[in-house]
Design a binder for these strands. Structure first.
Lengths: 259, 259
DNA sequence: TGGAGGTTTTGGTCAGTCCAATGTAGTATC
DNA sequence: GATACTACATTGGACTGACCAAAACCTCCA
């Protein structure tokens, strides 16, 4: 077949635009898409393209990086998923601003891959701290909202709606942590709470457990009703104690080979 | 499930393409790629395709989801970036196993977008807890390694190698947290420490600050030398106090409008 | 001067084609 | 009969060229 070293693209006349493409060898060995992605990421992280600014158009970038537009688009899509860039139809690709919330999809799908037990364990560290950050002036607000959610939760459980209950349970926790001092703190917790929701669904399907759970949440809310944020934080920690939580990791379910 | 006549692809006002799917409206309104990505993610998260198993081939999946292969590939690439799936050339796309470490690239690039001040603040919560998890039997090991790193750090600073110093600084912190009880805890911290390293570089370039920093790390290591993990944890927290840290966010640099 | 309307640019999507890595079945060999 | 090798089918990787729609830009006219 082709006796040429595999560095050259098949029948591509453009050849090597850069005569010194030695450092790129390692990247080329992987995949063009990945290579393009890291080269774009490098442009961004190095500050060559500042946050908020526009990248060159797809066609321009593609020719600059010596890849086809489809390959370039795959790379951009990957970077978008990672929260590095964002596309605006008809306008261009823009470098994501610092602290923008859009990367949360990336975080969430990543978090979904983590063992639920790990998530609870880390929440046990982060969540009490977030509760401690509730301003004294807002404690009553939070307590009121928590009470409301618990009431709805009880109703949902009575009506045999475990999905709704699980959802309300997530809202309860999100309510508790809404005043975490930094956005990162809030975002991480929100993502972990969301991810845990699915697993918690199991809990709410077993009648005995769901009532226990409700009681423990009532216990937390009581502390808030008293305006005792510190005690509430302690109770949240206790609530997330491994012994109490569902570390379900049932790999033993029947795995059917669908064709 | 969805048998609506979506055949007419061009000239399709994707405004109200679907007559029945209400839940998908929001997705459909975005982009075919995104829609495909979430539909695949749904397949995975719902357990329809278990971790480790193979997805249908690109051609099959594309026709199943009523998108073209390029669009499908963009979606897959995005999911891969998020750590949900992984491709094996010539074999197929596979659902990533739980707890696999490959998603860390996604986490790191996401973390890199977060304000450095936020990162430090969250580290201040997670890092002391990780230090507390050092087993009594391993404290001397950790202490020895920490001492070693500090020595190298001092040498690097004297030799005017701030990059090396920053790197060693990261290693120091990674050493402290290596016994965090869960992988998620370790991964999050590692990612935050790495991200912070770049910002910390600034510190190590200013002679006064670098020595202060060295002193504070010495202070932490001393507690470890005494075998007092609890005290070490407290000192780590103090070390990460906002007042002490560099929250650099200089947006005021000249932004020139190229072209 | 200020819109209205057309033109250009840009991302979104598609079809068709080829290449290379992988996996497999079938054949030849011992 | 077991093993090694070859040929082929499948699959991801990549490219070309084209068209559409949204956005941005520009021109021209009132």
């Amino acid at each position: 077949m082709n006796d040429e070293p595999r560095t050259s693209r098949p029948s591509k006349p453009l050849g090597q635009a850069s005569s010194d493409s030695k450092a790129e060898d390692t990247l080329n060995a992987i995949s063009l898409t990945d290579s393009a992605a890291s080269r774009i990421a490098a442009k961004i992280n190095s500050g060559e393209i500042m946050p908020g600014r526009r990248l060159p158009s797809e066609r321009a970038l593609a020719s600059e990086l010596n890849v086809s537009r489809p390959a370039l688009r795959e790379a951009l899509q990957a970077l978008q998923s990672a929260g590095l860039v964002q596309s605006r139809r008809g306008s261009g690709w823009y470098v994501q601003e610092h602290g923008s919330d859009d990367g949360r999809v990336a975080l969430s799908s990543w978090m979904a891959l983590q063992p639920i037990g790990d998530i609870i364990a880390v929440r046990r560290i982060l969540e009490p701290e977030a509760v401690r950050s509730i301003p004294a002036t807002r404690v009553t607000d939070v307590a009121a909202r928590a009470d409301e959610l618990l009431k709805e939760m009880r109703r949902a459980l009575r009506n045999g709606e475990p999905e709704l209950a699980a959802q309300l349970h997530s809202s309860f926790h999100r309510t508790l942590v809404q005043f975490a001092s930094t956005r990162l703190h809030r975002t991480l917790l929100a993502s972990m709470i969301d991810t845990a929701e699915n697993a918690q669904l199991e809990l709410f399907r077993t009648p005995q457990v769901d009532l226990q759970s409700l009681e423990r949440h009532r216990w937390i809310a009581d502390a808030l009703d008293d305006g005792d944020v510190e005690e509430a934080a302690r109770r949240v920690a206790a609530h997330l104690e491994p012994a109490f939580t569902f570390t379900g990791d049932e790999r033993d379910q029947t795995v059917e080979v669908s064709e």
